[in-house]
Design a protein around this nucleic acid. Sequence first.
DNA 1: TTTAAACTCTCTAGTCACTATAGAGTCAAG
DNA 2: CTTGACTCTATAGTGACTAGAGAGTTTAAA
Lengths: 135, 135
Amino acid sequence: MKIGELSTLTGCSVQTIRYYEKEHLLPKTQRSEGNFRLYDDASVEHLLFIKRCRSLDLSLSEIRQLLELRYSPNAPCDEVSHMLSSHINHVRARIEELINLEDQLASLLHSCPSQGTVKKCEILKNLTATQKIMS
Amino acid sequence: MKIGELSTLTGCSVQTIRYYEKEHLLPKTQRSEGNFRLYDDASVEHLLFIKRCRSLDLSLSEIRQLLELRYSPNAPCDEVSHMLSSHINHVRARIEELINLEDQLASLLHSCPSQGTVKKCEILKNLTATQKIMS
DNA sequence: TTTAAACTCTCTAGTCACTATAGAGTCAAG
DNA sequence: CTTGACTCTATAGTGACTAGAGAGTTTAAA
């Protein structure tokens, strides 16, 4: 199959597929006479693996490592879980940050009744004056 | 004061300050005879405002808008709270996404005892075979 | 007075994971 | 035989910086 079909089968855009090839996440394929990339079922599989990893927010370089492991059947598998658990730690840390942010933003929003003019806006005052926000 | 002092006073790097100027978040300053940027207390204030907004994850273009409002004392202040509440919605949506992600990653991690080799690794199998992860 | 260190200047390129475009070539149907 | 859909490569843009080169300026010590 050509790149367009791979694209519709996997839901990755054509440009993204070419980009993955350039980044060595996909191996270079055979080409047709007219220099079109040719793919097979294994390519679909391979690309879907990448897509699932991306949907878990793994970086391309993490995925590259996973792909290497995937094709090294006798490697110890704890590398895989190690990577995943460090990744989950990042995610958890980011969640903490965002929840904190949400609190700050909510306090800031409550601090101003949103009537009147900017001159008296408590939000802008709070952004100007202090790191702490009074709610 | 020169840019280095502004940098230490605000905790923004020198490059970042110059970048903000280029992006019109900071006005162009006076220059010394030797072409060094010269700042005053108002600059510190201004930059700290930007920094606080960044710490709330507001984008530079959102901050540009806030700065405009800040210097338009008679503008209605609900633009400010409107921007903030749409921002908080983004933050909340992102938190939802990340919590979902965390669940998926945790299931994936649990699916493999992390002993043995890649060949039998349930994590890789789950990443390969299906979108759903068995825990 | 010299000179060395520390600071500043502009300009350019790199980061990440794409996305968008230009301009050219290939292929299948009408 | 031409139109339209597809594909190719190469380049530039996104956001918010960060890093570096290479040059000029200022300040302090020798």
